[in-house]
Every structure is written in C-alpha cells, then in structure tokens.
Nucleic acid binder design. Structure first.
Lengths: 202, 202
DNA sequence: CTAGTTTTGTACTGGTCGGTAAATATATAG
DNA sequence: CTATATATTTACCGACCAGTACAAAACTAG
C-alpha cells in the first residue's frame, strides 16, 4: 500500500472539470427539461464530446439525476436551511421568501428544475419523472414533520393539521415556480409570499 | 351559387371523427407534454395515419394548439364559469374548488395541460411554450380585472391590490396542478383551497 | 358511365436521437 | 525506456423523429 495524496491518478488526466461540466448540464436540463434536452445540447454546453460524457456520468438519465443532486446541494438552495428556523412561522417565511428570490433570479433559468424537469414527459423519461415526484413529496414530508414538531413544542396550536399546512405551503411554492416561469419578478413573488402567510396560523 | 345543406361534400368522406380524434390527441399531449409526444403516439391514439393527421390538423404544433382550444372550451372547464360568480369571494371559491375537482379527476390525466404541456422545453417547442405562457397570463389578467370590478362594486375593500390577489390565486391554482401531478386527491386539494381562502379579504 | 375532388394506406425522405467501437493521446508505475 | 491505465477524437450504429410523395380508394357532380 503506497501513501496516496488526495490526487494520484493513473492514465490520461481528464481535460475538463466535472463539477463545472455538471453545472452546465444542470442549466440546460433546467431550461429545456429532460425530454427537451438532447445529447448535443449537453455536450455543446459542457464543452466535451459524447464519449467523455458517458465515461464521466453514465448516460443521459444518470447525468440528469446527478444534476438534480447538485441543484439541491447548492449554496443558494433555500429549502433545507429554512427548515431549521426556530419557529414554524419563520420556517414558512424563509421558505416563501427564499423561493421568491431564488425562482425569479435572473442569473439562472426561471423556476425550479425539480418541478419543471419532467412534469409531463415521454416513456423514456418515466424514471426521471418518478425521481422528481419523490423529491417533491419528500420535501413536503419534511415540511410536515417540521410542523408536527412545532405542534409538539407548543409553537403551533394542537388544532392545526400539519399535513394540510405543509401541502398548502408546498402548493404555493410549486405555483411560484410556474409564476417565475411566466416572468414574474422577485418582488411580485414576495407579494404572493406575504399573502400566503396571512393564512398561516399564529 | 347552389343551396347548400350543412353537409354536401365532394370527394372521399373522412373516415374518422375530427372531434374525437382531437380529444385523443389532447389526452396524449396532456400526459406526455409537447416534447414528450411523438407523431406515432398521436396517430396511434387517434387511430389514424400520419397523412390524415397532417391533412386534417396541419402539423404537430397546430394540432397541439387546437387541442388546447378544445381543452379550454370543454364543458368541464371551470375557469370562465367561476369568473361569473356574483362576488369576488365566490369567484375565488368556485375557482379553487373547481380546480381541486378537475385537476385531480382520475378520469383524465392529472394536472393541467396549459401548465404542464411545455413548461421547460426544446427550441422546437418554443412557440408552443409561449402560447401557453400567454394563456396563463391572460387567465390571471381576467382574474385581476374581475377583482378590480369587485372593488368598484364595493364588493372588495379599496385597499385590496387586485393584481396581487389575482397572482396569489393564480399561484395556488398552478401549484394545484403540480400537486395533482404528484398524486394528490380531490379531497387533499380541497383542503388547500380552504386554507387559501383564509388569506382572502372579506 | 366519366370527370373531378378528397381521403386513404404505404412507403419513403433527410435529419436527429441516445449510445458506442476503435484508434489515438497523455498520464503514472516500474 | 516499456507496460498499463485512462481520456480524447472521430466515425459510426440502428432507431426514431417530423413531415411528405404517390397511387389507390371512395365519394359527388354531371
């Protein structure tokens, strides 16, 4: 066993950076959706040839799933951080205003790739569609659990239905993606966030 | 000029019904989206061959647009009828509960084809995407105008921002389509509708 | 009947799809 | 240096894409 630094590779070194290539792929999938994105779109945006793409990421489907993982783990992702706010109301608040800022951010495609990546799609995209469905359901489930915890902590009244509250919030967040897709500005989405919070139990 | 009854046609008669064929096409586009639907999907579902499709409907894009027209003029469409309710609150109420029933209706694809037909899509679908965007904006505009009328009629307080209210409602309605796509039941969507109305000015 | 008109099924177009085989290039290990 | 391992480029695969040419079929008009 030889002492190995963090990078001792045999063979020709990769000529591109996998992370930045994955960012490029994410951007294309985000704008065009899974069905609407061709391998040519991807290789052109990533600046690599097809065999390099397949060697590095598997195939189109696996590349998409890796892009989604990147999307959710980005520094600008707002969902998970919002869950950690101290009160249920602040959770909702940060999530809604985070979505308003993020989904209408002009520096990236409008909306949310988890929502619009494969909403209606071909059979070829069925697995991808299901993966995205599960992500959305898991997000809502986490929100529900957070609200159940808030009830246990006395932060929300016991009369509140955590599942309904989570679904209401999830519905607005998902609707915001469509609004952003339609050209809504961050300010307009903030107004929606403000109205949404009016229905929140205090 | 000869007196013409409603049906005097020269040439070989069409062997299929255009309306039912268009219904079938709508169902496919609804489930698979514009990019995800192939001409083979369409001809198979419609029970006709490609030349018949092209002769009757133009091409894939025109067929899609005609299917959307059909969708919006269906008897089960809820949007336009809701606009005619006497009060702003009832407008919102009927729209939300109509959406809950319609979008999660198990007898048809889940969600709304105007929302999910071409959300993220290829360049080939750009015209279709824009047409759907405009439909969504027009719907929200009609809602806004209805709420402005309600303010003029004293049915809504003058302090209400009709545009924001319309956007809030539009956001929830669009979010409901995603929820339905995720398998939400009509009852679950009704609960969302109920919460949404809590934020409505009375 | 014939002439004219439209729809039908079959077969085909050039182009693009996702994916890969094979040869060449560039690194490390010894 | 040689041997080995990995990445690169080029060229290609069969399948499918949206769309169409063409001739046979089925109707009306006269």
């Amino acid at each position: 066993m030889s002492a190995v630094g963090s990078s001792s590779h045999v063979g020709r070194p990769r000529a591109f950076d996998m992370d930045t290539a994955l960012e490029k792929a994410l951007e294309v999938f985000w704008r065009k959706g899974y069905d609407g994105t061709s391998l040519s779109d991807l290789t052109e945006a990533m600046g690599i040839n097809k065999p390099s793409l397949y060697a590095a990421f598997g195939n189109k489907e696996q590349l998409f799933l890796k892009a989604i993982e990147l999307y959710e783990s980005r520094p600008c992702a707002f969902f998970m951080p919002a869950l950690e706010k101290p009160t249920a109301y602040e959770v909702a608040e940060h999530m809604l205003y985070g979505a308003a800022a993020n989904m209408a951010n002009k520096d990236q495609p409008q909306g949310c790739v988890v929502i619009q990546g494969a909403l209606s799609c071909s059979e070829a995209a069925a697995a991808v569609k299901e993966a995205l469905m599960n992500r959305r359901l898991e997000g809502q489930q986490k929100l529900q659990e957070r609200f159940e915890r808030a009830k246990a902590e006395g932060d929300l009244p016991a009369s509140v239905n955590a599942e309904t509250l989570a679904r209401y919030l999830g519905t607005v967040l998902q609707g915001m993606a469509i609004q952003a897709n339609n050209g809504a500005t961050p300010e307009q989405l903030r107004q929606v966030a403000e109205m949404t919070l009016l229905a929140f139990p205090r």
